[in-house]
Amino acid sequence: MSAVRWLIKCGAGAAIVLIACGFATVRFGGGLQMPAATTRDGTLVTLSRYLREPVPDIVLVGSSITFRLKEEYFATPGLRNLALAGGSPVTGLEIVAKQPRLPGVILVEANVLARPTDAALVKRYSRGDIEPLFFRPVRAAVAAYEQRLHAPLTHEQVALDLRRLVGQPPGDFDNRVYVNHALQQFNAEDPTDVVQFNAKRVEELIRLVEQRGARVLLFELPYAEPIEGSRFAATTREIVHAAFPDSKRWLPIEVNRSELRWADGVHLDERSAVIVTQAMERALALARTGK
């Protein structure tokens, strides 16, 4: 076989696969939910879904700490959690603020403000062209398989399990090794400059979205006791409260701390996440009726 013929056949093979995937994307593209093999993937799935579906009433933006508050834990309808595992609340807030329509209430986590905004992600989700030209055939096949096995749950489906979970005693997992690692990291660097910068940006974004009719409330999720006293947590708390001194700007989360447990001192375990979610819902109901 001559080199030219070989290369033409090779090109034809590539073209056939590309065309097939292009047609499949046109046919199924809008409904595909790619599996989140990594935290980055999870971010893309969450954000793509937010842009594709109708604007919800309430949106949470945050980091991996808020990511643990699963949407199905909330009884409140029309709530969407846009927290980015490994990301910053400011990234989520930027993306929400850049959309043509805003949710009624935006809840912004104030725990992790030392990470820079993911400018590439903001740019990508500010253009509106979220549908790719071709889907990823392997990921799409796995997505279909995973969705068949584990379809997204609704609150009604899990309500009974959640009640049972909260009724159980707190977990006895020994997390000391993980807390020590986390504490080292939380004491390693001085976050002052970045947190001040991000707090200022949050202030600007709040002003922008509130001018357009949305309401913004800040919230702080509890850490394990040793982490609360770390340099990172203490500095962030001090700067954010100085920037937002009005108590009405905050969603109070009132829980019995002795009931809470953390996998690593930072991220709540499942039972604790449900308890915190319920406390947030109570506070949110009060905040909305009292506005």
Partner: peptide
């Protein structure tokens, strides 16, 4: 050649 083309795609 088709196999290599598919790999390219």
């Amino acid at each position: 050649p088709y196999l290599y083309g598919s790999m390219a795609a």
